[in-house]
Design a protein around this nucleic acid. Sequence first.
DNA 1: TAGATTGTTAATCGATTAACAATC
DNA 2: TAGATTGTTAATCGATTAACAATC
Lengths: 220, 220
Amino acid sequence: MTESKPSHTIKTVPEPTLRRLPRYLNTLHAIRFRGRLVVSTSHIADELKLDPTQVRKDLAYTGISGRPKVGYDIEELIVALETFLGWRNTEEAFLVGAGALGTALLGHQRLEECGLRIVAAFDRDPAKVGTTLHGKEVLPMKKLKSLTARMHILIGVLTLPAEGAQEAADRLIEGGVKAIWNFAPTRLIVPDSVVVVDGELYSTLGMLKHGLARALKNEE
Amino acid sequence: MTESKPSHTIKTVPEPTLRRLPRYLNTLHAIRFRGRLVVSTSHIADELKLDPTQVRKDLAYTGISGRPKVGYDIEELIVALETFLGWRNTEEAFLVGAGALGTALLGHQRLEECGLRIVAAFDRDPAKVGTTLHGKEVLPMKKLKSLTARMHILIGVLTLPAEGAQEAADRLIEGGVKAIWNFAPTRLIVPDSVVVVDGELYSTLGMLKHGLARALKNEE
DNA sequence: TAGATTGTTAATCGATTAACAATC
DNA sequence: TAGATTGTTAATCGATTAACAATC
């Protein structure tokens, strides 16, 4: 018996591709700012030191198509990429853990441009509860689940230590959250229906410091 | 004529491996906390839903070796990983851009545990210059290059908008910086001797929102 | 039309996974 | 010793790159 895939299966996008798409957007914004209306994949590839074929393959995933000899309409391409990445429709989110990192994300304007509006923070510290950070209320943990449900919040942002992370994730998921942006240094156990994406702060810091160590060693 | 590699060539570590190593550390800390003294690769792999062989290959890069039948000494393994990632010797850094994100990193305690001590911030806003954030001075941009050189700073952290990023990177590099942790949404052009690692805030946010959109679509 | 660029198919490369011998 | 686990070599898989036909 051969396995028959459901006809509506969406082609999954390779993770490396997904990581590059936001970089294409950065580049496109810069190019558009210089007054260009169309752009070729070699143009984008040059700017980012990538292979033009790779850029073309990546763009194909978003469903947009260019015109031979001409290239891609920059405006259309930006819209297609932003739509694909989900940056075109703003989604409300709750943040758990109002420490330094959490406070930063509450105040980081650019997140809203990427379709993420953090509407409130939660913290277990009574001294923080009731205060306002960057215009957003800090609420007590015991309200996390009920408010998530009542406000139909779909995204949770975790900026707390590893210890409290799983517990917070559980409450959020019980409340109906479908996606978690996790900055806590721990792996979360969640149902298949929930997406977890790691903030990767420490991964990138590891790459940085390892790279520095190598660079210094090579110099001797 | 055959190419002869220099005998001291260091084997380069695949990027996926480098991304996983900090996750192993998280897991190891949790396992150690539970009182274990040794750990097997299948144990680590189970916790992180990875393949044991992959964990073994990754660990081999750090130079540590385990004992057949027994496994790895947790303590030794943690030290080996931290050393490999450069988290064991603290390096001083300058941060440029004292906005919300920059302020957060200035106050984020855990960075120091990963060997990064941000000692001062720089900003072009005269209103911020002279103030103190999380106990660290905010200094004017015009001192960036000279202070970097005088204090032998090797790491720069960029938390400013795309526009100012290249300029700041240039000043840091002129001052002697060898590694840049870049949170600005732009590609930096730097000499080969300088390591740039992207903070990837927007890449991960893109993966999150794209993942959410897919999850919601699959549900209908 | 000729040339440039897209989009696709094939070849290559590198990372993951499987198989297994070495070893405590 | 027997069994479990490491560490390495081989097979597989997937992503990148190269080649090239289609097209404006």
